[in-house]
Simulated assay, not measured.
Amino acid sequence: MTETTRLVAQSLAVWEEWNGMGVADRRVLLTAWADNVEQRGDVFETAAQMIRFHLQHAEALLEPVHDMPGPTGETNELYTAGRGLFLITGDDSLSLTALAGQLTATLVAGNCALVAVPAALRHDTDALLADLVKTSVSDRLVPTIDLNHVDSALADAPLCGVAAVASDALLIEMNRTLAARDGVLVQFVAENNADLLPIVASPTYLLRFITERTRTINITAVGGNATLLELGSGEH
């Protein structure tokens, strides 16, 4: 078993509990994360602002549970949930602020993440993740790997999505690797403008990290159902 395989297994092992917490509880922990990050000052203040930005929109876009029409005696609800494991990465253009946006969208949506960043960003990334662990989030939820292992992760890891900030050339190469995989297509959330971040800083960015689920609850007694069926058959 390779180191990356081991880290992926550990991350997925704690993912279901994280996903099961719900958006509101995840937002509480991630808000505390933003507080921790902000206290570091300098570039971390902008990163904290990005975290809060996405958490604000998560409250409006992800947290509400929507009632759906259904038969009498049945309630149907539409809600959001995480997809699974995302790879968060980028080239030398990846900034701490962009990384904070990628991570926040991934985590608040209910996913776990594998992080690979350039060497110049590794120290700040370690600090960012250390502040996350201080909030009681498991240190296994977001492990880091060496940037040299990204290609193998793209090809073989059980990913449900990839979020990358990089040049067009690298994004095209990554997309081709993902397209060559067998099985279900992997969601690719690509940002090629590292200065303005029109995608990462979009209010709806986090919608790229969710899946929609429906929950059906039958609140009618068995006898009631039998009676309705009997009445229906008697009309013909």
Rank of each mutant, 00 (worst) to 15 (best):
residue 181 R to D: 00
residue 160 C to E: 07
residue 217 I to R: 15
residue 151 D to F: 10
residue 160 C to R: 01
residue 196 L to S: 13
residue 87 L to V: 06
residue 229 L to C: 13
residue 161 G to F: 06
residue 120 A to P: 03
residue 16 E to L: 08
residue 12 L to P: 08
residue 66 H to A: 05
residue 169 A to C: 00
residue 15 W to L: 07
residue 191 E to L: 04
residue 140 R to K: 11
residue 228 L to M: 15
residue 42 D to V: 11
residue 122 R to H: 13
residue 221 A to S: 15
residue 170 L to P: 00
residue 106 T to Q: 03
residue 188 F to N: 06
residue 233 S to A: 15
residue 183 G to Q: 01
residue 9 A to S: 11
residue 170 L to W: 00
residue 8 V to K: 08
residue 79 Y to E: 09
residue 5 T to S: 12
residue 115 V to M: 12
residue 1 M to V: 13
residue 231 L to H: 15
residue 92 D to R: 08
residue 18 W to H: 06
residue 134 K to D: 12
residue 67 D to N: 13
residue 163 A to D: 02
residue 134 K to A: 07
residue 178 L to W: 05
residue 99 L to E: 03
residue 105 A to N: 11
residue 146 D to Y: 10
residue 164 A to L: 07
residue 52 R to I: 07
residue 211 T to C: 02
residue 13 A to P: 02
residue 146 D to S: 15
residue 169 A to P: 01
residue 34 A to T: 07
residue 16 E to N: 08
residue 126 D to A: 15
residue 47 A to M: 09
residue 138 S to P: 01
residue 9 A to Y: 01
residue 188 F to H: 10
residue 210 I to P: 00
residue 196 L to P: 01
residue 129 L to N: 10
residue 219 I to K: 15
residue 196 L to V: 12
residue 162 V to A: 06
residue 10 Q to Y: 03
residue 9 A to R: 12
residue 178 L to K: 04
residue 44 F to N: 07
residue 93 S to F: 09
residue 161 G to E: 03
residue 31 T to G: 06
residue 155 A to Q: 09
residue 69 P to F: 07
residue 118 P to E: 03
residue 97 T to G: 10
residue 111 N to L: 05
residue 31 T to R: 02
residue 221 A to Q: 14
residue 7 L to F: 08
residue 76 N to A: 12
residue 192 N to I: 02
residue 28 V to H: 07
residue 164 A to G: 02
residue 212 E to I: 09
residue 59 E to R: 04
residue 208 R to A: 10
residue 3 E to I: 14
residue 210 I to M: 03
residue 75 T to L: 10
residue 105 A to Q: 12
residue 17 E to R: 01
residue 19 N to V: 01
residue 196 L to K: 14
residue 122 R to M: 12
residue 192 N to C: 05
residue 109 A to P: 08
residue 132 L to T: 09
residue 3 E to S: 12
residue 135 T to D: 03
residue 205 Y to H: 13
residue 148 N to M: 12
residue 22 G to L: 05
residue 223 G to P: 10
residue 201 A to K: 11
residue 45 E to N: 04
residue 36 N to I: 05
residue 83 R to E: 02
residue 29 L to K: 02
residue 47 A to E: 07
residue 18 W to G: 06
residue 220 T to V: 13
residue 174 M to I: 13
residue 218 N to K: 14
residue 33 W to V: 02
residue 196 L to R: 14
residue 162 V to E: 01
residue 192 N to T: 09
residue 94 L to I: 07
residue 102 Q to M: 13
residue 66 H to L: 04
residue 78 L to T: 07
residue 1 M to Y: 09
residue 232 G to E: 15
residue 222 V to S: 15
residue 184 V to D: 00
residue 64 P to M: 06
residue 54 H to T: 05
residue 97 T to E: 13
residue 77 E to Y: 11
residue 211 T to M: 04
residue 74 E to A: 14
residue 92 D to L: 03
residue 70 G to H: 11
residue 186 V to W: 05
residue 107 L to P: 10
residue 61 L to V: 06
residue 190 A to K: 13
residue 190 A to Y: 08
residue 58 A to Q: 09
residue 64 P to I: 07
residue 100 A to M: 09
residue 219 I to S: 14
residue 79 Y to L: 13
residue 35 D to I: 04
residue 58 A to W: 11
residue 234 G to V: 12
residue 210 I to C: 02
residue 222 V to Y: 14
residue 193 N to P: 00
residue 161 G to R: 13
residue 146 D to H: 14
residue 171 L to P: 00
residue 128 L to N: 08
